[in-house]
Design a protein around this nucleic acid. Sequence first.
DNA 1: GCGACAG
DNA 2: ATCTTGTCGC
Length: 196
Amino acid sequence: MGLDVQYVGNDAYVAATVLSLGAKENYKHYVWKTQTDAPYIPQYFAFKEGPVLKAFIERYISQQTILPDIFVVDGQGTAHPRKAGLACWLGVALQKTVIGCAKESLLPYESPSEEAMSYKAIRLEESIVGYMLRSQSNTKPICISAGHLINQEQALAIIQQLIGKYRNPDVMRLADQTARTFAKGILNASEKVIFL
DNA sequence: GCGACAG
DNA sequence: ATCTTGTCGC
């Protein structure tokens, strides 16, 4: 399950895209609107988006019978100055497997080679805290790191499998797109869209 | 003190 | 994240 939130003032429009690795074209979107007054503070993004995603997932779990194996969020996991990004916060709060997939890194990194799927480790205090992944050639790399109940290599491998024709993995791109149209009030109802 | 800083 | 047009490329 890929998750994203769009904010319009204190309104939070949450969207989740659910798909299987074996059949990525059979996705479904789940959307829900809620409120938050938490501010965005760099390095403390988890305290803004974490509670929103936690409430969304608890709601999802209470209504659905089949639950996702892995959650992917738009933010950092351990690739964070204190190794404690949004993906860690959410994973610990729910005791679920979460991966962080961000478009920018908070930590310095060396650029992966230009070829698609090449990657470079992000290190902090001697240890690997994530990977910069060149999801497409000639495109800025994305930042992948483990959040909870998964290791860095597995997190990287899962995201690599979710990459399609675009820079961001399909679950993230679709969730982002859905949250956007939902927030703008132009989300088309269909059998693929479920309002929670 | 000033700037930089996931979204 | 958001403010914003056309434009280049697959």
